[in-house]
Design a protein around this nucleic acid. Sequence first.
DNA 1: GTGGTCTAGACCACG
DNA 2: GTGGTCTAGACCACA
Lengths: 131, 131, 131, 131
Amino acid sequence: MLLRVDFGSEQPLYQQLRDQIVEGIAAGALAPGERLPSVRQLAADLDINLQTANKAYALLQGEGFIKAHKREGFVVRARDELAASAEHRREITSKLRPICAEAVCRGMSEREFARFAAGVYAAVKNGGPAR
Amino acid sequence: MLLRVDFGSEQPLYQQLRDQIVEGIAAGALAPGERLPSVRQLAADLDINLQTANKAYALLQGEGFIKAHKREGFVVRARDELAASAEHRREITSKLRPICAEAVCRGMSEREFARFAAGVYAAVKNGGPAR
Amino acid sequence: MLLRVDFGSEQPLYQQLRDQIVEGIAAGALAPGERLPSVRQLAADLDINLQTANKAYALLQGEGFIKAHKREGFVVRARDELAASAEHRREITSKLRPICAEAVCRGMSEREFARFAAGVYAAVKNGGPAR
Amino acid sequence: MLLRVDFGSEQPLYQQLRDQIVEGIAAGALAPGERLPSVRQLAADLDINLQTANKAYALLQGEGFIKAHKREGFVVRARDELAASAEHRREITSKLRPICAEAVCRGMSEREFARFAAGVYAAVKNGGPAR
DNA sequence: GTGGTCTAGACCACG
DNA sequence: GTGGTCTAGACCACA
């Protein structure tokens, strides 16, 4: 899986990496048990600092998406090892609120919005139009 | 409409204000043409820096949600004055992607997600469970 | 509250800081809402790197013990804002197991061990014999 | 006694082995005088590096849990051959402190904690719910 | 002033 | 080789 990074973005580099990897897992491009590039490799490939790569992986590890494996470096965790969904729903709600608010303001109806959200979901799941 | 601010949030204060005001417009708590509190008023009420209040309004103005009135005044714009939907869709998509990715990883189905998104939309539109 | 650090310890510096601060909270030396020294201050006081102090605080923040406050820097969170205890029990169990095993091997009885553990608990809670 | 090793754990492999063997001794699964598998055997069985197996045994030997037998052999020591309890108490205290601190912060009472610790002790002694 | 991010370069523990 | 830790010094966003 190809990872890229936009130095001009206002999003932190480690966050960009985190998002791409989560997308990769969602799309199946990164299967459970699969190895991720080593922190050094990643840093070298993207020409970023070791610590930045480190932070991205640490974040993903903290969220339960990946874990450090003694011989393999970082590997993708199985889905059933992920945290409960109660907290996830709360989190997702607060992220969705401002998006919904803007959609309302711009005249998008509830149905339209739901369809649109479903479309994005599908695109992500199928590894659709890359970021 | 009551504006509040959480100093413990990881979001910048001006962003919190921006989001609340957009939500207010979405829920109809702020009608087109309605006047917003002056930056001085707002800064004093919330005990925040004047520049912070300024930045929030500047942001909203840049996005087209409000427009400058007399001097120091801002009023809510009418919906049909808002920017075209093409760009909005692109923007909303990029915001939705990481949320969808995480939802996929946590085992939420497309239908579930669409329903959930619709639920949040409805809540926001009706001024539901405030933040 | 006085924080110290042992450069010769095999424990990471940030971990030492984390433990001391948790102890401080447990003993009441750090009350909810109370400010912690700024990362820069801490780094300067202990003559450690900024990033190390940063990491300690980030860890504590991730665990829910403290949070970043916009004007005050890092502050202690209220106890009721801490995560549920189900996971805590699991975690504590796995930490306790090797300690118990060693106690058994060294001939300490269950009652002795329980008393001993209670003693340490009390000492920690009352800000007993500092580390 | 069956030894296993988790490459995904954050604990070093040699430490995992050390802990399991101490638990085995505590539970009586490994009796005094009993011979442990040879380092070569162990390394081959668990598919780990020879040095790793070596390190685990060296650790246990240093702590007094096992002693070198003929060549390449290790046997479990009798309990009364173990080190004095004064040092053990000091060591156990420092290990218990951070656990207690967290327990206090999470609202576990002293009695609860003592009972809980006793429960873990009993489980370990009876070879309870394996790790 | 605060925390947040990034860089460059180093040493160590582990396997 | 892997990840984990630490340092020194820099720039930015925020309030």
